[in-house]
Design a protein around this nucleic acid. Structure first.
Lengths: 214, 214
DNA sequence: CACCATTGGATAGTGGTTCTATCCTATGAC
DNA sequence: GTCATAGGATAGAACCACTATCCAATGGTG
């Protein structure tokens, strides 16, 4: 077999190993999610193990995290452009936690909740996507007549401060970019869902208590 | 105008007041989200203010909370069947917080995280959707090799305990069923999103600190 | 009494998303 | 020489939430 010189995979083999149908691989190729294989001849192409791990990343981002094609493309482009890790992780956070899906088009944000939280928690006073998202979200809640008091922000942020500390401490960063994104994205998604489920559980438990007492 | 005897609205008027196109109203009628109007004659129908508030509820559930038609239909059916409020609110929580969207089909759940949390927080030891969802989610994280230690659960649940207490205390329940669901669903959604945004902000802040210190 | 608007019901079409399938030609492998 | 495969193009499927069109019946209006 001259084909597999150098350990390269053909499209069909790539498909078999990852369980992704050839037609889907071609689709990802077309959409620019998966870089073209090395055209070894005009009708043969060779895919590297990086292609396999990229494909697994795409699958995880689609099936587990639930991102759409456009979001995945943006993230992968950043990775391929070799942006600094911190920037890459910020983009992963923004995408995975849907930080840019708020109606930020409300013009100026009149609810500087971020400022309040920064003071309350003594966090560094730096701009961030998360801070903007928070401001926009609080503004949205205001417009829906759902009050967000400073006391609420204090209690929430105090609680989440301890969680975030744990999260960041537990973070390990793999060297391979595909794995880095995979770990970060899946981890963030899973942890945020865990928080939501625990919150639901907590609320349900408190509701039961109130109901029993009454 | 004999039509508006009794203050009823015609479909077109209903449309004009709520801003929902007539074709969409017909669609909701077909899908069983909106009960049929009172057929005052064979070709005239009259819609009550309840129809308007129901329509507004549907809009909020779709546009703000992001539920799909099937989910909305289930919720409204419960309301129309007159199930007890606590049960209704549990269903709202399950739907809004996507408690049933985990792969609970994994057979038996081998990670009784709920038990641990119940002990740690001294919560009532009662079954709930939230508890099941938590168990399923922790099992999923286990299967993805994302460790969920008791220490993590302790810190998370402790933090969320205080938040849930605030949330439940702040809850007011309107009498009108449509408004009840609207308030509960929008409130839960907004608060959960607030938690997520604050968590993201907290993580970003901690990351900055670490980065600066290093 | 003629006509216009409106109703419920049926049916079909739209636009977006993510694939999945088919067809094609070129060409390397055996 | 025959077969499998590559890339490219194109089309179709399935799902979702509408949106539009057509229809016959009929009430209200002038």
């Amino acid at each position: 077999m001259t084909l597999n010189e150098g350990g390269g995979l053909q499209l069909k083999e790539l498909s078999e190993r990852t369980g992704v149908p050839p037609a889907s691989i071609k689709f990802y190729l077309r959409e620019g999610l998966l870089p073209a294989g090395q055209a070894i001849t005009a009708t043969r192409a060779r895919y590297s193990p990086q292609h396999a791990s990229r494909l697994e990343l795409i699958q995880a981002l689609r099936r587990v995290v639930g991102l759409n094609i456009a979001q995945i493309r943006k993230l992968l482009k950043l990775a391929d452009d070799g942006v600094p890790r911190l920037e890459l992780l910020a983009a992963v956070q923004r995408t995975v936690l849907r930080l840019d899906e708020v109606g930020t088009e409300h013009g100026d944000i009149r609810t500087p909740a971020g400022d309040a939280v920064v003071r309350l928690r003594n966090w560094p006073d730096a701009p961030s996507d998360a801070r903007n998202a928070l401001n926009a979200h609080v503004a949205l809640m205001d417009s829906l007549n759902i009050p967000v008091t400073t006391e609420l922000l204090d209690a929430y942020s105090k609680a989440l401060d301890t969680i975030a500390d744990l999260d960041i401490a537990a973070t390990t960063a793999p060297d391979d970019v595909n794995r880095l994104i995979m770990t970060a994205a899946v981890g963030m998604h899973m942890h945020s869902q865990l928080v939501l489920k625990l919150l639901a559980f907590a609320q349900a438990s408190h509701a039961i208590r109130r109901y029993e007492d009454a």
